[in-house]
């Protein structure tokens, strides 16, 4: 795995919403994700609450445990400390906001236990 974050988190990256509108990554708001998911035929937004943040054996990584969706499925993800998540009503947040800002120029809040992140799931398949 690469130690680099995906390019679309870099400040100034151009993001296309589902209705075709273009926005910079740092200008995205909660409504942009919600509205984009509404018009998506496959994807819907779930609420994923941060339950735990543990250190990882991998340098500069953390293991984040989320409680996902209405069924509160427990899901762990291992990410770099600077990996940004979008918190409802708050915006970009990472475990190490200083590092995120240093590497990506993206302003971040500190991701904490109890924060509710935007995640994606599939709309029910029939």
């Amino acid at each position: 795995p690469s130690s680099a974050l995906p390019p679309y988190f870099m400040k100034g990256s151009i993001i296309q919403l589902a209705d075709g509108e273009l926005k910079r990554v740092e200008d995205l708001r909660t409504e942009d994700f919600l509205q984009s998911a509404e018009v998506s035929t496959e994807l819907k937004i779930d609420s994923s609450t941060v339950e735990r943040i543990d250190s990882s054996r991998t340098p500069d990584a953390v293991i984040i445990q989320f409680s996902v969706g209405e069924h509160k499925a427990q899901v762990c993800v291992e990410v770099l400390v600077e990996y940004p998540f979008f918190v409802f009503g708050q915006g970009w947040s990472s475990c190490c906001p200083d590092r995120t800002t240093q590497l990506l120029a993206l302003s971040c809040a500190k991701l904490s236990v109890g924060d509710v992140c935007i995640s994606l799931t599939l709309k029910s398949l029939r």
Binding site: P6, P7, Y8, F9, S13, I14, I15, Q16, L17, A18, L22, V25, L28, D32, F33, S36, S40, L43, I45, D46, S48, F66, V68, G69, E70, H71, A73, V75, V77, F85, F86, C117, I118, S119, L120, T121, L122, S124
Partner: peptide
């Protein structure tokens, strides 16, 4: 200039079962 789709930016976590 590359343009990225909105859904790249948020993680895909476990699909929920609908009842």
């Amino acid at each position: 200039v590359p343009v990225f789709p909105w859904h790249s930016l948020v993680p895909f976590l476990a699909p929920t079962q609908s009842d």
